[in-house]
Simulated assay, not measured.
Amino acid sequence: MLPTPFQLTSATLFAIMFSLGVGLPLEGFSCWQQNRGLILRALVGTCVLVPLTALLLMWSPTLALPQPARFAIALMAVCPSAPLLMRKAAKQGGDRSLAALLQVAAALLAIVSIPLLGLLFTRLFGVAGWAIQPRHVAGQVALAQLLPLVLGLLLRRFAPRLAKRIELPLDRIANVLLLTLVLLLLVKAGPLLMTYVGANAVALPVMAAMVLFSLALGYGLADPDPRQRVTLALVTSMRNPGLALLLASTHAPGVPAVKLGILVYLVITIILSIPFLRWQASLRC
């Protein structure tokens, strides 16, 4: 029997977070004492300021966003700790250890921040059909992110040789699952994509504005160090589509356009990140 999209989403997120825990450079965690102010600024930026900016944009009376688009933007905004953040930072001239530390810290903080922000969004917008309970979301985030992450960290701590041996295969499995999930969603909803874009055209500039603001926010919160600036810009702009899709499957199952919106937000993030990263690369030359 083939897995359902919900089961595949859950398995993908679990595999990604477990792989992250297995591959984390534990020695890099000692840098938190020297960078406590930077880490605090980054966490406030990615877990608080980005979601609140999305809230203000959607609250604007000049933006009549359709409800599915609001769901998608809200879910991506409140879900920090992007799955591929550490690798992306390492490849783009960022600080891999700092990215790892921020990714773990954001995943922990998300257990509190996502339920509270979700409750704030639903109360302000009077969302119908989304019976969100903070304790349920906290438990779901903990099981989906924290549990596999902790298991991976424990394996790396107490069985480093085994962790080193399986790190690359686990990473590949997690990437294949993520690619499979995205392709499955595109195949199932592909025919509706152009319809979605046409019906939600006003949401595309809002998504782009969110991504650009997040990049600028991370860049501005960092110290005047090119590696830190790249890392924090990626931390604040890259959201967690796996977690957003999982929450959409749980709390908005009757609104399939939400998942399309999440994918569109992800694509916009990737596209707008390219010129920023090229600009940063040109500064290092």
Rank of each mutant, 00 (worst) to 15 (best):
I132M: 02
I132P: 02
Q133A: 11
P134R: 00
V141F: 01
A144T: 07
A144R: 05
L147W: 09
L147Q: 01
P148A: 00
V150Y: 02
G152T: 13
L153W: 00
L154N: 07
L154C: 09
L155G: 07
R157T: 13
A159N: 07
R161W: 06
R161Q: 12
A163Y: 08
K164M: 14
D171E: 14
R172L: 15
R172D: 10
A174M: 02
L178N: 13
L179V: 10
A189C: 11
M194P: 05
V197M: 14
G198Q: 13
G198F: 15
A199V: 04
N200I: 06
V202C: 04
A203T: 04
L204T: 08
A208I: 15
A209C: 07
V211A: 11
V211P: 15
L212Q: 00
F213N: 08
G218C: 08
L221K: 07
D223Q: 15
R229L: 06
V230H: 07
V230Y: 05
T231Q: 05
L232M: 08
L234S: 10
L234V: 11
T236M: 12
S237Y: 10
G242F: 08
L245C: 02
L246E: 01
H251A: 03
A252R: 02
A252E: 10
V258D: 00
V258S: 01
V258K: 00
L260W: 08
I262L: 03
I262E: 08
V264C: 04
S273M: 09
I274R: 15
I274A: 13
P275W: 09
P275I: 12
R278T: 03
